[in-house]
Amino acid sequence: MSMDKQAIEHFLHGQIEAWNSGDKEAFFAHYRSVSPNGLTIEYVGKPQHDAWQILEGMWAQQQPKIRVEVRQCIVNGTEAACHHLNAFREGEGGIETIELYKFEGGKLAVRYFINM
Score class of each variant (00 low, 15 high):
1 M>L: 10
3 M>H: 02
3 M>L: 07
7 A>H: 01
9 E>W: 07
10 H>D: 10
13 H>A: 12
13 H>M: 09
14 G>F: 00
15 Q>G: 05
16 I>S: 06
16 I>L: 13
17 E>P: 01
18 A>M: 06
19 W>D: 02
21 S>F: 02
22 G>L: 08
24 K>R: 15
25 E>Y: 08
26 A>Y: 05
26 A>T: 13
27 F>W: 05
27 F>H: 03
30 H>W: 01
30 H>S: 06
34 V>R: 00
35 S>A: 15
36 P>V: 05
37 N>L: 09
38 G>M: 13
39 L>D: 04
39 L>E: 05
41 I>L: 10
42 E>P: 03
42 E>H: 04
43 Y>W: 11
44 V>Q: 03
46 K>Q: 14
49 H>W: 08
50 D>S: 08
52 W>K: 07
54 I>F: 14
54 I>S: 11
55 L>K: 07
55 L>Y: 02
55 L>M: 12
55 L>H: 06
56 E>L: 09
56 E>I: 12
56 E>M: 08
59 W>I: 08
60 A>I: 13
61 Q>P: 11
65 K>N: 13
65 K>L: 14
68 V>G: 13
69 E>G: 04
71 R>Q: 15
72 Q>W: 14
72 Q>A: 15
74 I>F: 14
75 V>M: 06
76 N>R: 15
78 T>G: 13
78 T>Q: 14
79 E>V: 07
80 A>H: 02
81 A>C: 13
81 A>S: 12
81 A>N: 09
82 C>D: 09
83 H>E: 14
83 H>Y: 14
83 H>N: 14
85 L>T: 06
86 N>A: 12
87 A>L: 08
90 E>S: 15
91 G>D: 09
92 E>C: 04
92 E>K: 09
93 G>S: 02
94 G>N: 01
95 I>A: 01
97 T>S: 15
99 E>L: 03
100 L>Q: 03
100 L>G: 01
103 F>M: 01
104 E>M: 03
104 E>D: 10
108 L>Q: 02
108 L>G: 04
108 L>K: 00
109 A>T: 06
109 A>W: 00
110 V>C: 01
111 R>K: 13
112 Y>H: 12
113 F>M: 12
113 F>C: 11
113 F>A: 12
113 F>R: 02
114 I>Q: 01
115 N>M: 07
116 M>C: 08
116 M>A: 13
